[in-house]
């Protein structure tokens, strides 16, 4: 059983990885990436690393790649195939692939392939469980964990800096966001049948004060205007 699942997942992972780089439509490339990631998660399950498998699916397949799909489906509609790139790009890509290959060779052959004859690591109950991983991250690998978080934080700050609106976010909606802006003041019987048949009128709202003219000319907008019951005003 385990062998069958292993081969299905391994074939899926390899096919997905090859599909990512060979498919011409970027949308299908990203879908192949999703297939690759899910196959990898299945391989993690076989290794009894359930938490890793779940994290793989939640973080990569469920969040990161969804954003790829977003971008690709908005930008590339499939009618424009990916370009083949210039000669210089091809040389650089070849160099990178060569370097990666040499690196992998060093890493694998450097170990002398001792593990081939071995039985592999024994399964320890509790290995790969969330508690186990949490303990490892917070004790033995505390420093790398923190550094990786810092890296992500840097990326997040960078993304916010790139994506922020230069006018401070006022372009879309000229009212700024006020916490609790959805809570509109209403009378007790507002929205009931009693109000509909006119038995419980909402108290008439006092006429609105005209907004004070801002003293300084460049002041962008007047007070916060926390959604003062528009609906109640119409009924009166």
């Amino acid at each position: 059983m385990a062998e069958v699942i292993f081969f299905i997942a391994a074939i899926g992972a390899l096919a997905g990885a090859i599909g990512v780089v060979t498919l011409h439509n970027p949308f299908y490339s990203v879908l192949a990436l999703v297939g690759h990631l899910i196959s990898l998660a299945a391989l993690f399950l076989l290794l009894r690393a359930e938490f890793l498998a779940a994290a793989q699916v939640i973080v990569y397949a469920g969040a990161v790649t969804v954003l790829y799909v977003f971008v690709v489906s908005y930008v590339g509609d499939g009618t424009v195939p990916l370009g083949r790139g210039g000669a210089r790009l091809r040389v650089i890509a070849g160099l990178f692939i060569g370097m990666l290959f040499v690196e992998l060779c060093i890493a694998m052959l450097g170990s002398g392939l001792k593990a081939i004859d071995g039985d592999g690591a024994p399964y320890v109950p509790g290995f790969g469980s969330p508690a186990d991983i949490g303990e490892a991250l917070l004790t033995k690998f505390q420093l790398p964990f923190q550094i990786a978080s810092l890296l992500l934080l840097t990326a997040t700050v960078g993304a916010v800096m790139l994506a922020r609106r230069r006018d401070g976010g006022r372009a879309l909606d000229d009212r700024p966001y006020v916490p609790g802006q959805y809570i509109t003041p209403r009378s007790l019987f507002s929205g009931t049948l009693a109000e509909a048949v006119g038995r419980m009128r909402a108290p008439p709202e006092e006429p609105r004060q005209p907004a004070p003219v801002p003293a300084a000319a460049p002041a962008p907008r007047d007070g916060a205007n926390p959604a003062s019951g528009d609906d109640a005003g119409e009924e009166a």
Partner: peptide, 25 residues
């Protein structure tokens, strides 16, 4: 009764996004 418990549910709810996106696309 998986040891990852509720994460299992989140994994599949993360994947269900693809159902909508692929359908729409």
């Amino acid at each position: 009764d998986v040891s990852i418990g509720i994460l299992f549910a989140f994994a599949f709810s993360g994947l269900s996004v693809y159902g909508l996106m692929l359908g729409g696309w």
